[in-house]
């Protein structure tokens, strides 16, 4: 019995069933906080604890689903191709928006952490939090951050952007589809983009574009901003 509940079919079924329940709850309630990803986590984590399945076992069993992340990012290239008419004429605005977003993301982390007295390695671990995991880990490692702390804040940031992002957009009165997608992708990488994709194809495509741009721009800006702060002696 133990073998069966730790097996791939059981774990894959658990993941799919939990996510499906999440989708049904979202559809029934239409609340932005009823997020399928969040609901799936709320079901899976206690279930694993209850059945005494440890994380490495779960990771092995759910590896196939995790693998599909890569192909799904590649597939965003197709959704971008479909929005080519919207991309044309928006290139400058998009680049400026993401550049400013990246600066604000990095500087706000530095200011908030300094005010609260967090040590330098926490700051360097948090700077790339809005960036897609592989790029974020690289930035963190190169600047002396704690890579595992970066990995978890990237996921937390993603889930936060996906759960609370739509409400934030509403409060901020951002209604333009391109702007919504870009903002979610820039603040919450792939997880934000998956949420944008649920809003519509335009939002989703620009979320995908934001993942790439935000990642590259942040990777370039983090060392520069750190150098500026160091030379100013603040």
């Amino acid at each position: 019995m133990r073998e069966i509940i730790c097996s791939e079919p059981f774990i894959l079924a658990l993941v799919l069933c939990s996510y499906y329940v999440g989708l049904r709850i979202e559809r029934a309630t239409r609340l932005s906080f009823a997020n399928p990803l969040l609901i799936a986590l709320i079901i899976i984590i206690p279930t694993l604890c209850l059945l005494d399945i440890d994380y490495p076992t779960f990771e092995r069993g759910s590896h196939f689903i995790n693998f599909l992340l890569g192909p799904s990012v590649v597939a965003l290239g197709f959704t971008l191709h479909r929005q080519i008419d919207l991309i044309k004429g928006n290139v400058m605005a998009i680049l400026c928006a993401i550049f400013a977003g990246s600066v604000v993301g990095i500087v706000s982390v530095i200011i908030i952490c300094r005010l609260l007295g967090a040590p330098q390695e926490v700051i360097t671990s948090l700077q790339p939090k809005s960036v897609t995991t592989p790029i974020a880990l690289g930035i963190s490692a190169n600047t002396g951050g704690i890579v595992s702390l970066t990995a978890i804040t990237v996921v937390i940031c993603g889930i936060l952007g996906s759960v609370a992002g739509p409400a934030m957009l509403k409060v901020l009165r951002i209604r333009n589809k391109i702007a919504k997608g870009l903002a979610l992708g820039a603040a919450a990488h792939g997880i934000g983009t998956s949420r944008a994709m649920q809003m519509g194809p335009v939002e989703g495509a620009f979320g995908g574009m934001a993942i790439g741009l935000m990642g590259v721009i942040t990777a370039i800006l983090v060392p520069i901003i750190m150098k500026i702060i160091e030379s100013l002696g603040i």
Binding site: V15, Y19, N35, A40, L41, S62, I65, N66, L69, G190
Partner: peptide, 9 residues
Amino acid sequence: MALFFVPAG
């Protein structure tokens, strides 16, 4: 796509 983030979450 959101489903594929479940293991990481």
